[in-house]
Design a protein around this nucleic acid. Structure first.
Lengths: 204, 204
DNA sequence: AACCATGTTGTCACAGTGTGCCATAAGTCA
DNA sequence: TGACTTATGGCACACTGTGACAACATGGTT
């Protein structure tokens, strides 16, 4: 990895950290791109070369999480029930965060805290989730051997999986430690599995 | 209803229709507020007094749909299982559109067509749905006699209900007549009910 | 009818977002 | 070193969204 790339990554993280600090200190809405750029000593123009917009900052781990889910899904056995495979993919995202650097984990928790007080960002977050849902639906449709444009059950499986994830991630809000999030997510997955009929995701 | 209110409503619909026409003709992104305002012969400033932003236009029926759902929910018997009640609320939204004026139904279908080709708007739509989900969760928590901040199942019930709605509404896309939407929605509801364990939404 | 309180509109100024363009500086490789 | 690629900064610009104020329309009152 060349100097150029390392420097870019460093700048990217510097922007991220400066932005998070400003957001948590003075609020998301009242923080401008100009302020963030100023704190990292780059021009506002350059900011937009790293992040397409301010919201994109808050979606930091969504891109990564989506990739983890898709990778995990690809590795799961083909005969595993789709929802089960999705639950594994979901757990993999959390595992990945935990096994990352302390700095990354800290950013993850700060972002979560940021979402807590900003319905607007929660909205953005679920909107980003809709994109993930589309991509997951493609994969699940392939696994099930159906056309994603024809099969409602495929979309229902993915939507239920994402719902399970959101419920585990968002609700209820307590201290917000990594351990708690993992515990809540496990609870949510277990709960969802108790709600669904055995074999519900195998029919077609 | 005074002249003043009638005039406002007329302007509101005029903006809506002009905007829809422009969107479908030249695309959503490439239509500016200035153009819409020009087509209705109002100032751009006035546009923002009717709709908080351009996206708000595309969320036209969300506000109304949310109210219908909440009203329907309030009328459902208290001992009805939560998910069943939510499915009734969901059907009520479509019934309401069908029993409205032909103009309103036409706007509804145009909006749906608009969403089809704009992932950005689909994102906005599900973000708006997240707000509805929060409000529904309050009601369902009250029905179940639990604290919405403590009970994951409440949120799972609502999230599954909204998922069912989205799947029925969005997928798969065909001719897009009112009849088809209703049929797809009925299919989706039936499918969801087959996927879930009987009595899953009664536990606590 | 004249009057006033209230609501609606247009105009202006302004802050902020996001993009295209081009010159310049920095990293890369021969 | 010199030739190249890529990142950056600065500039102008279009668009969004809001606050403030003046002009006007409406509805009710005397």
């Amino acid at each position: 990895m060349g100097l150029r790339e390392r420097k870019k990554e460093k700048t990217r993280l510097a922007i991220m950290d400066a932005a998070l600090e400003l957001f948590l200190e003075q609020g998301y809405e009242s923080t401008t791109v100009e302020q963030i750029a100023g704190a990292v000593e780059i021009s506002p123009r350059t900011f937009f070369r790293y992040f397409t917009n301010k919201d994109h900052l808050a979606m930091w781990f969504h891109d990564h999480g989506e990739e983890i889910m898709l990778e995990t899904l690809a590795e799961r056995p083909a005969d595993e029930p789709p929802f089960t495979a999705l639950m594994h993919a979901l757990r993999a995202v959390l595992t990945d965060v935990q096994s990352s650097t302390p700095d990354d984990a800290s950013r993850f928790l700060k972002l979560r805290k940021l979402l807590d007080g900003n319905p607007h960002l929660v909205g953005k977050s679920v909107a980003r989730g809709a994109r993930t849902e589309r991509r997951l639906a493609e994969v699940i449709a392939a696994r099930r051997g159906v056309d994603p444009d024809e099969d409602q059950l495929t979309h229902l499986i993915v939507a239920f999986a994402m719902s399970t994830m959101r419920v585990g991630f968002e609700c209820p809000r307590r201290d917000g430690t990594m351990e708690e999030i993992q515990r809540r997510m496990a609870e949510s997955i277990e709960l969802a599995e108790r709600c669904l009929r055995p074999g519900w995701d195998l029919r077609h």
